[in-house]
Design a protein around this nucleic acid. Structure first.
Lengths: 329, 329
DNA sequence: TATATTTATGCAAAGGTTTGCGGAACTGTT
DNA sequence: AACAGTTCCGCAAACCTTTGCATAAATATA
C-alpha cells in the first residue's frame, strides 16, 4: 500500500506541499477553508507524518536511549515502565537495550544509540564497567546522560539514585531499636556503587552503638544469598536479624529461612531494601525500606527533560525512601 | 559538536560524497587505497551513519513495535527481554509501548507505531480490545503483526502462544493422578483468550473422570485471588488441590494459604502455570507447567522474521510447556 | 596511433518534511 | 486611480544517504 505523504495530499487537493504542511500545523498564513480541506483529507487517508523525514530535517531525534543490565528483574522493569510512560506522554521514542552486565555489549549498545541519534541516554552501568571513555563521548556531543542505580564514581555525571546511605541507615536503626544484637547483612556485588554506599552506612550506623555484632556478606545472586543464609542459620547461635540489600537477596534469604523453618520474627527479624512488590507476599509480610524503580524512573525522566532544556550542570538527586512496616521485626 | 556526515568526510578527503559512501561499503568500484583512507578517517572521526537518512532513502525502517499491557509484570518482562536480544542481534530497533490495558491507549500506540514506520509489530492485546479494525490497517499496509499471549479470535492473524489447552490439561491430569477430588481452579479475566482456552481444557479433562468436584473462580489481580482463596479455605472442608492459571494468581493464592497456615501438600496441593521464577521461591517449591515468556519471545521473533521474509500466511504456533516438579503435589 | 576496454570517481536525483522568502490577488485608503 | 497593507499560497533549499548513470583517466588491443 502506497504511503501517504504531504506530496500525495497536495496532489489530491491541488495545493503545494508547503501549504499542506502549514495547514496541518494550523499555521496562521493558511485560510480556514483550506485548513479544513487538508485536515479532512489527512484524516480520511490516515496520514501519519514520516518521522524519519522530520528528524532528518530538524536534526533532532526525539529518541531516548535506555541501557540496563537486564529488563526482566525487579526494579529495572518498573523503572522502565515509568520511563516508557513519560516518553509516551512527552512524544519521545524509547530505545531499550540490555547489556547483560557485559561491558563489551555495553559499548556496542552505546554505538547503537549513537547510530540512532538519541537525544539523551539513561544508563545503569554493568557490574564491571569502569572505563567511562565511551560515555564521555556523549557528554562531548552534548547528549545528556542520566545514570541511575549503578552510577559512576566521578563528580561530572548526572546521577539519580536511591538515597542509599539514608535507606540503609533507616533499616539498621529499625533493627537496633528492636534491640537486635547479632546482625547478618547480606549485600550485593562489592564493586557496585550502591553496595559500597549501603555498606558504609551500615558500618557507620553500627559504630555508634556498643555491643552489636555484625556479619557482612556479599553475593551475586539469590542462590548465593540462599547459601550464605543457610550457613549462618545452621549453627547453634543464629543472627537475630537480617538486613537484605535488595529484592534478589531477600528472595534467597527467605528461601533458606523457610526451608530451615526459622520463625520470623520470633527467631530472627528480617528487613530489606525493596521495590515493594515481594515483601507483601511473604507471611509475615516483610518490613522494607522502599527503593522504588518506578519513582526513580519518574525522577530520572524529569532530570532528563531538564538536561534537554539546557540545564546541564551535573547533579546527583535522590528519591525518597519511606519505610513500610510489615510483621518481620 | 558538529555531526560527522559523509559530506564532511568527503570535504576532508577531497572526494565526492558518493565515493565516500561506496568506500565505506567496500564497493568494488573503489580503489583499495581510497577505501583505506576513507575507513581511517571514519574511524578517527567516529562516523556513525544517520539512520534517519538511511530509512528515508530506503523507505524501510528496521524498527519493530511491541505493545504490551505493562512491562513490569512476570512473563512480559521476560518476553520483552527475549525480543530485545533478538532485535539487537538482527539490527532492529525495538519500540516498546505499554497499553495499560486501555484500548484507547492501545489505539494511540498503534498510531505511534505507524508514525515510526515500524516494519513489524508484536502485540499482546489489552483486556477489552475487541475492535480489530486498527490492527487490520497494518495488515492492509503489509506490516506483519504477531500476536502473543492475549491474541484475537479470528483466523487471519499470526499467533504465537503457550499451548494453553495442553498445559492446563497436563496440570489437571497431574492433580487427578494424585487422586485429588475437590479442585479449586483460579483463573484470570474471563474475556481473555487464554483464560477461555485454559478453562475449556480443564473442564474437558475433568469431564472424563467421575466423582471430581471442581470450583471455577475468576479474578483480575493477586488481591482478588487471595480473597477468593481465603473464602474457600476458611470453610470446614477445603479443596484438596488448587490450580493457578498464572504467576499473578499463584502469588495471591499462596499468600492466603500461608496466612491460614494450610500445609502444602499435606492439606492441599498446588499447581500453577508459571514463567518459572516464583515457584522456586516458595517452600515447598511449587510444581508448575512452564509458560515461558522468554521462549515465547524467541518464537515470536522467528515468526516475525519469516513474515518479513514474505511468509505472510497467518499461522498459530506454540511453545513447548514442560512440567517442573516441585514438592507441592 | 587510433580505438576499445577497464578502472576510479563524480553528478544528480530521490526519499518526506520544514521554513524563509517572494509574490499574486484582494481590501482598504487617499 | 494610485498606492499601501493584508491575506493566502508556492518555490526552493536543506537535512543525509544511496545509487543509476555519466565521465575522465589509464590501460590494453589492433
Amino acid at each position: 500500500m502506497e504511503n501517504i505523504t504531504l506530496k500525495r495530499m497536495a496532489e489530491v487537493l491541488g495545493l503545494s506541499i508547503s501549504t499542506v504542511s502549514r495547514a496541518l500545523k494550523n499555521h496562521p498564513d493558511i485560510s480556514a477553508s483550506t485548513k479544513k480541506r487538508v485536515h479532512e483529507i489527512a484524516a480520511f487517508l490516515d496520514y501519519e507524518p514520516n518521522i524519519n523525514a522530520i528528524n532528518l530535517r530538524s536534526k533532532k531525534n526525539r529518541v531516548l536511549g535506555l541501557i540496563v543490565p537486564t529488563i526482566s528483574i525487579f526494579f529495572y522493569d518498573s523503572f522502565i515502565s515509568a520511563i516508557e510512560e513519560e516518553c509516551r506522554k512527552n512524544d519521545y521514542t524509547l530505545l531499550i537495550l540490555q547489556s547483560g552486565n557485559d561491558p563489551g555489549i555495553e559499548i556496542n549498545n552505546l554505538s547503537i544509540c549513537r547510530q540512532n541519534r538519541v537525544s539523551g541516554l539513561f544508563v545503569c552501568l554493568a557490574t564491571n564497567s569502569v572505563n567511562m571513555k565511551a560515555f564521555d563521548k556523549f557528554k562531548e556531543a552534548d547528549i545528556p546522560l542520566v545514570f541511575f542505580d549503578k552510577v559512576p564514581l566521578g563528580k561530572g555525571y548526572n546521577k539519580v539514585c536511591i538515597p542509599d546511605e539514608k535507606a540503609a541507615k533507616l533499616a539498621v536503626e529499625s533493627l537496633l531499636k528492636k534491640n537486635k544484637k547479632k546482625l547478618l547483612a547480606v549485600l550485593g556485588n562489592k564493586s557496585h556503587s550502591i553496595t559500597r554506599k549501603r555498606l558504609q552506612s551500615i558500618k557507620k550506623t553500627i559504630s555508634s552503638k556498643k555491643g552489636i555484632e555484625i556479619f557482612i556478606e556479599h553475593c551475586n545472586s539469590h542462590t548465593e544469598a540462599k547459601n550464605i543464609t543457610r550457613q549462618y542459620f545452621s549453627k547453634k547461635t543464629i543472627p537475630d536479624a537480617i538486613f537484605c540489600m535488595s529484592d534478589e537477596i531477600l528472595i534467597g534469604v527467605m528461601k533458606s529461612l523457610n526451608e530451615l523453618k526459622i520463625e520470623i520474627p520470633a527467631q530472627t527479624s528480617v528487613i530489606a531494601l525493596s521495590d515493594g512488590f515481594l515483601p507483601k507476599f511473604y507471611t509475615p509480610e516483610i518490613t522494607y525500606i522502599e527503593t522504588s524503580g518506578y519513582k526513580l524512573g519518574k525522577l530520572a525522566f524529569i532530570r532528563m527533560l531538564n538536561c534537554l532544556d539546557g540545564k546541564v550542570e551535573p547533579v546527583e538527586i535522590f528519591t525518597d525512601s519511606p519505610m513500610f512496616k510489615g510483621e518481620s521485626l
